[in-house]
Amino acid sequence: MPLLEVSNLKKSYAAPDGGTHVVVDVPDFKLVAQAQVALSGESGSGKTTFLNLIAGILAPDTGSIKLNGQELAGLRESARDRIRATTIGYIFQTFNLLQGYTALENVLLGMSFGPGADREFAKALLKRVGLEAKLNHLPRQLSTGQQQRVAVARALANRPKLVLADEPTGNLDHTNAGESLKLIREACRENGAALLLVSHDREVLGQFESVQELAKLNRAAMQPT
């Protein structure tokens, strides 16, 4: 049984002209446990929307998302929140660290809503990403690359089955981007989490054995806009 199974997934938004604008229309997508897959797609092709649907942040119009054997589509928001808290880690292009919280507190919040806070594990994760000396630093006291590493540690904090990464290296320079990507992939592997990464960066995509084009998966992305 695959970890993630998406079928006939549709999401549309109200268009300014009063009609609807279909953004995601994915007939079929699967991901097995601990796999690492990259999705490529141009800007506006629905990458973020697709990840937000899988994370349960957005509710689909129709279709099915089975995560770890559980159907997300029909669930109430709070139930989707619960699943996100326990089985999903999310890495954002803009890191989305909480500015008022230290590196350690950010990582602790990554587990608080799911398995519960575990200081030792949080410290171990920060040590793993090379930040054992920066536990009590606020995000603004860290470099961009260090902030990204806090975000990686936070995404793994709830011991997720699946890590979603939305252009995780988009805000980093060339060298940092390469190292960061390596870290994300290794850390996911070590923690037994599958990785679904979306990007339009050829260089990033080139690192993955398995790359799928969203343009092919997503019928909505092919429609002329």
Binding site: A55, E77, D81, I88, N96, L97, L98
Partner: peptide
């Protein structure tokens, strides 16, 4: 901040 907390699994 609220959106981030929600993305981390905090319920509404």
């Amino acid at each position: 901040d609220i959106a981030i907390l929600r993305a981390l699994g905090a319920r509404a």
